[in-house]
């Protein structure tokens, strides 16, 4: 029996699954930072529109 396809398949599975493992936190972080930046932008806009409104300077998430 030719063992080559089994060896290749095993190493491919190893590399692909570890690549997914490595990339998933990277993508999650990028998405999170983007969301946080948008939230900050919204808050800054609100603060600029009504600087005296106490609600606009709240630090809690929407």
């Amino acid at each position: 029996m030719n063992h080559f396809p089994f060896i290749l398949g095993s190493y491919a599975v190893f590399v692909v699954l570890l690549l997914i493992d490595a990339l998933s936190p990277w993508f999650a972080r990028r998405t999170l930072v983007r969301e946080l930046a948008q939230r900050l932008k919204r808050e800054n806009r609100r603060a600029a529109q009504s600087p005296t409104d106490p609600e606009s300077s709240s630090t809690t998430s929407p």
Partner: peptide
Amino acid sequence: SRARVQVLEQESGKD
């Protein structure tokens, strides 16, 4: 790297 993202998410309201 996963824990850093999780920490950022949980602390997202902090200064």
